[in-house]
Simulated assay, not measured.
Amino acid sequence: MRAMTDTQQTTQQQVQWLHIDEDMAGQRIDNFLRTQLKGVPKSMIYRILRKGEVRVNKKRIKPDYKLQAGDEVRVPPVRVAPKTEGPNPNLNIVSQLDSRIVFEDDALIVVNKPAGMAVHGGSGLSFGLIEALRSLRGDDSLELVHRLDRETSGCLLVAKTRGVLRGLNAQLRDKDMKKIYVALVAGEWSKLDRAVKAPLKKQVLQSGERMVRVDGEGKASETRFKIRQRFAEGTLVQASPVTGRTHQIRVHSQAAGHPIAMDDKYGDEAFSHQMQQLGLSRLFLHAETLSFTHPKTQQWLTVSAPLDTELLSVLDKLTKI
């Protein structure tokens, strides 16, 4: 597929006709345009779609239209922000990502994302993990398969090609990808509470902060829990999300009466303070394991990321029961 030149990325003055090949097929037109028109606000992309300025095979399409191999996409003239430089690969936070890669082959990367690092830039952040990884590898084709909260550590899956991304996204959509998280929660989790099924609804506060709450009008959500270890101070649980809602494990833990340690949005202040006294300075939520069918080999693959030293140290200080 023809790529935009640097000049076009700064100011695209002419209509473009882009040919869709097999590797690009299957993705929504709005997502395709966001990839092609980097620097263009989402609002503008949806506006040119709504006004019919974007055409596929000379026909108007809706934002959810899925591209097919052989499609010809008309992209109207738009002003695009100049291409920005990625983070310096020599920065410590960037260079250290190499040591946190727990699996890599010619199709994908699984990195043990550090807590406190956003998965992508924006909202005041000049860069996130994906921009850092692209800079480190000198490869702009790397794409996030899914996301983790900034405060959460653990397995994050990155695709190296559009075809691999499409295959992994299909597994996520069909709930064929399995995720296991580990969390330290307040109180004594009951053996009877094996699953939390509570609909979740997002809201944006006046401050702009994004929050999620249990709401009958929200989206159906389910998380399955299993006790790993009981402590006098709390419970180490395994959480397996069936659905993939924003802040799902954090809100479902809170809804069950067992908020996660050091959760500044949904936590218990007294419990978090107690864990802070033991050396915990971050949310105790870690994406431990990812299991999925490798999009190229078709083999079932399980990849795990070890708990960071800080989390292990806190667990060592707790009293087992």
Score class of each variant (00 low, 15 high):
Q248A: 03
T319R: 13
K160L: 12
H19I: 08
P77M: 07
C155A: 15
D71K: 08
L148M: 07
Q171M: 07
A256C: 05
Q229M: 04
V196Y: 10
L33T: 00
E85L: 12
P76E: 15
L236Q: 07
K178R: 15
M24C: 07
M1S: 11
L33R: 00
K202C: 03
L156N: 00
G26W: 12
H286L: 09
R147D: 00
V237Y: 02
V303E: 14
P82T: 11
E233Y: 01
F231Q: 00
V204G: 05
L318H: 10
R224S: 12
V110N: 04
H294G: 07
E72L: 12
K59Y: 11
F284N: 01
Q299E: 10
A287Y: 04
I93F: 05
A287D: 03
A170C: 11
E143N: 13
Q171C: 14
P241N: 03
T7A: 14
M4N: 09
A118H: 09
D316H: 13
D263V: 03
R166A: 12
Q203M: 05
G208V: 01
V237I: 09
P82K: 06
R137K: 15
Q203A: 08
Q248C: 01
V145Y: 05
P41G: 08
T35G: 08
L129N: 04
K265A: 05
Q277R: 10
K296L: 13
E131C: 03
Q27T: 13
E143K: 13
L311W: 00
D6M: 03
S99N: 15
A69W: 02
F271Y: 12
N31E: 04
R173T: 10
G52Y: 02
L318Y: 14
F127I: 00
D105Q: 08
K201S: 15
L172F: 14
A118E: 03
L108I: 09
H286E: 09
L97M: 09
T289E: 00
E233K: 03
K296R: 14
I20S: 01
S304E: 13
A195D: 12
K179H: 14
S281W: 07
G218I: 05
T35N: 08
G154H: 06
Q276T: 08
H146C: 12
R34T: 09
V182G: 07
N112R: 00
K113S: 06
Q206R: 01
F103E: 13
V56G: 03
L283V: 02
F284W: 03
R173D: 14
W300L: 09
K191A: 13
H252T: 02
V56D: 06
L192H: 15
N31R: 08
P295E: 14
V303I: 14
E131T: 02
P76M: 10
A270P: 01
A3I: 07
Y181D: 06
H247E: 11
K51F: 04
